Simulated assay, not measured.
Amino acid sequence: MFKYSLLLAAVMSFGLLAGQTKDKDDNLVYRWVDAKGNVHFSQTPPPGQKATSLEVDAPKPSSTPPAPIAPPEPKKEDKLDPSLAKLKGQLKEACDRARENLKTLTTFDRVRMVDEKGEYHLLSDEDKAAQVKQYQQQIKDACKQ
């Protein structure tokens, strides 16, 4: 049954593509069954066979072309001056870095940092708390969006 419905849809589509919907007679499709029991659809009746005519409601082809689709409005971010876009990228990097550092400080008990001389030292609980507070402030400042 699906095969026949598909064939009917193909026949109707072909008629639409070919522009065959000029008057009422052009909306007729003929259905018949051959000797082997196969169902056929056509726009012309078969010679020497009994066929059932079906009227198909097909839309008339339009003589006017469809209206062009306007390109989407650029986003506010797309209109940024290149220097502002660069600054925004730097803020995003600072935000990501501060979040990662805060995650490290809150995940591990012992954290070591590099001082001004390039030497590593473990953070005391007071230093760690100060660093957490500093990164939370950086996240607050840099991650505004």
Results as ranks from 00 to 15, higher is better:
Phe2Ile: 14
Tyr4Ala: 07
Leu8His: 00
Ala9Phe: 04
Ala10Ile: 01
Val11His: 13
Met12Gly: 03
Gly15Asp: 04
Gly15His: 00
Leu16Gln: 02
Leu17Asn: 14
Ala18His: 07
Thr21Glu: 07
Lys24Asn: 11
Asp25Met: 08
Asp26Gln: 02
Asn27Asp: 00
Asn27Pro: 01
Asn27Ile: 02
Val29Glu: 01
Tyr30Gln: 00
Tyr30Trp: 15
Arg31Ile: 06
Trp32Pro: 03
Val33Asp: 01
Val33Pro: 00
Asp34Ala: 03
Asp34Tyr: 02
Asp34Met: 03
Lys36Phe: 13
Lys36Met: 03
Asn38Gly: 03
Asn38Val: 10
Asn38His: 03
Val39Ile: 10
Gln43Arg: 11
Thr44Val: 10
Pro45Met: 12
Pro45Leu: 01
Pro45His: 01
Pro47Val: 15
Pro47Asn: 13
Pro47Tyr: 15
Gly48Gln: 03
Gln49Leu: 13
Lys50Asn: 10
Thr52Tyr: 07
Ser53Trp: 11
Glu55Ala: 05
Val56Ala: 12
Val56Lys: 00
Asp57Gly: 12
Ala58Pro: 03
Pro59Arg: 04
Lys60His: 12
Pro61Lys: 04
Ser62Tyr: 01
Ser62Gly: 06
Ser63Arg: 11
Ser63Asn: 09
Pro66Ala: 12
Pro66Thr: 04
Ala67Lys: 13
Ala67Arg: 09
Pro68Glu: 02
Pro68Arg: 05
Ala70Leu: 14
Ala70Thr: 06
Ala70Cys: 02
Pro71Asn: 02
Glu73Met: 07
Lys75Arg: 14
Lys76Gln: 15
Glu77Val: 09
Asp78Gly: 05
Leu80Ala: 14
Asp81Lys: 14
Leu84Asp: 12
Ala85Lys: 11
Ala85Leu: 09
Lys86Thr: 10
Leu87Ile: 10
Gly89His: 05
Gln90Lys: 10
Gln90Thr: 08
Gln90Val: 04
Lys92Met: 10
Ala94Met: 09
Cys95Lys: 09
Asp96Glu: 14
Ala98Val: 02
Ala98Ile: 07
Glu100His: 09
Asn101Met: 05
Asn101Val: 05
Leu102Val: 10
Leu102Ser: 15
Thr106Phe: 08
Phe108Ala: 13
Val111Ser: 05
Arg112Met: 11
Asp115Asn: 14
Glu116Val: 09
Lys117Ser: 15
Lys117Met: 10
Lys117Val: 05
Gly118Pro: 11
Gly118Lys: 04
Gly118Val: 07
Gly118Phe: 01
Tyr120Ile: 13
Tyr120Gly: 12
His121Glu: 06
His121Asn: 15
Leu123Lys: 08
Glu126Tyr: 06
Glu126Ile: 11
Asp127Arg: 11
Asp127Thr: 15
Asp127Cys: 08
Ala129Phe: 00
Gln131Trp: 12
Lys133Glu: 15
Gln134Phe: 13
Gln137Glu: 06
Gln138Ile: 10
Lys140Cys: 01
Asp141Asn: 13
Ala142Tyr: 06
Ala142Cys: 04
